[in-house]
Design a protein around this nucleic acid. Structure first.
Length: 104
DNA sequence: CGAGTGACCGCAA
DNA sequence: ATTGCGGCCACTC
């Protein structure tokens, strides 16, 4: 039906991320239907809709996006803290504790 | 339409 | 621990 269900799926998953929670690119990709398309999630985040909370999407290490607009990690960090997420001086979040798994 | 690039992940050496 | 490679899909040249 659509030329890119994957993108549509990603939009749906990301838009469902609760505030104060984070998710990994790999998890978004897996929920979107392609567990190995984590890379694509980043591409969609950059070219996709800007009204989605991409700030809650981080990598497996809990590290923030390097290519984030505005100054990369600095902009990303501010947005995460605005959501109530704690970011350390190494631009890492407590992924093991805040990781959202499409359950709540 | 072909090739290169990219906000990543996982495995092998 | 680090480095290298393949894989996935969308976008730009």
């Amino acid at each position: 039906m659509n030329g890119s269900d994957f993108s549509q799926n990603v939009y749906r998953v990301v838009s469902r991320i609760p505030k104060g929670r984070v998710i990994t690119y790999g998890d978004v990709a897996a929920l979107a239907g392609s567990p190995a398309a984590a890379r694509q999630v980043g591409q969609i985040a950059h070219f996709g809709p800007q009204h989605l909370p991409w700030q809650r999407v981080v990598n497996k290490q809990g590290g923030l996006a390097k290519g984030y607009p505005g100054g990369g990690l600095y902009a990303h960090r501010d947005l995460l803290e605005a959501d109530g997420v704690v970011v350390d001086e190494h631009f890492c979040v407590d992924i093991d504790n805040l990781r959202w798994v499409h359950d709540e």
